[in-house]
Design a binder for these strands. Structure first.
Lengths: 152, 152
DNA sequence: GTAAAAAAGGACACAAATATCCTTTTTTAA
DNA sequence: TTAAAAAAGGATATTTGTGTCCTTTTTTAC
């Protein structure tokens, strides 16, 4: 479904949103460990997220690190995909046809169109902070987002 | 969503189901042109489909080619994904976590679980022949599955 | 203002996906 | 039984995705 790049981008951003703040910036070391991802590769991805779409904020030097502003927390999850140029999952034809629409549908269009619509909704209507809130409400215990988990 | 390999596998199989029969086998040349895919690469993929899961049947030599048996036409679309080892789209966590379930959900599990369920249904409940039937009923006009299109 | 900490950036390495080409095997028709 | 047609198979090339490492820049604290 998504590339490793997109998965790490989502995991890292959610991790930073969950554990960090402007007063408590997180270093790349902690983030990579927290989401179980390769450190340097993740650093590259975070660069995309700080530059391309300003989803993540960063500060260099001692006490520096990554965090999300309140503004960024209101962004839809789609903004993360956009930063790593993978928004197209939302719109792409399941058979990979360049043209696939209601008037020129591919043979799977009827079956897929509603799923695609829901994917679109999920990524566009869900704010990053919303994921944080829901996660904090639950008593979840997650393996890969290690530092984030709570005991069951 | 899907790899090129999976897309070509789906397109080729649907193309063969639409245009071919045991009496009218299709050659790789025609198939690749019909679905707008690289010829040799598509040939490799068709090998997977003939070997791994017997979704497609083939005969060598003059008047040989590819076709689908009636049995194969009843297979779910998932069988095509299985042949190219890409069934996991149906079950995979959207964030790529190894463990993600109702009891140990990832932060997007709530939003994604229903979409995943529908994806699963689509690939498991839709038979290849069903796509053919629906396509033939409509007055469709498709660019990439070139030979298959009908005028609007 | 100097040293240390941290992200940013550049260059490179490795692996997987995608794609091509050529040879071999099978089959058919003449 | 031979030539031609077609898929099967093997080897290799190319591109993209993934991952690492080292240097540079920025920032802070002392």
């Amino acid at each position: 479904m998504l590339s490793k790049t997109a998965e790490y981008a989502l995991r890292a951003t959610i991790y930073i949103a969950l554990k960090g703040s402007e007063d408590n910036k997180l270093g790349i070391e902690e983030i990579a460990k927290g989401i179980d991802s390769p450190r340097s590769f993740t650093a590259k991805i975070l660069q995309l997220l700080t530059q391309n779409n300003r989803v993540i904020s960063s500060v260099r030097g001692p006490n520096g690190g990554f965090y999300l502003t309140d503004r960024a927390r209101k962004l839809p999850v789609k903004a993360i995909l956009a930063a790593v140029e993978e928004e197209n999952v939302i719109t792409k034809c399941v058979l990979g046809l360049k043209e696939c629409s209601e008037t020129r549908p591919c043979p799977m269009h009827t079956q897929y169109k509603n799923i695609k619509k829901q994917l679109k909704q999920m990524f566009e209507k869900t704010a990053i902070q919303q994921l944080v809130d829901e996660f904090n409400k639950g008593n979840y215990f997650i393996d890969n987002l290690k530092g984030v988990r709570k005991p069951c």
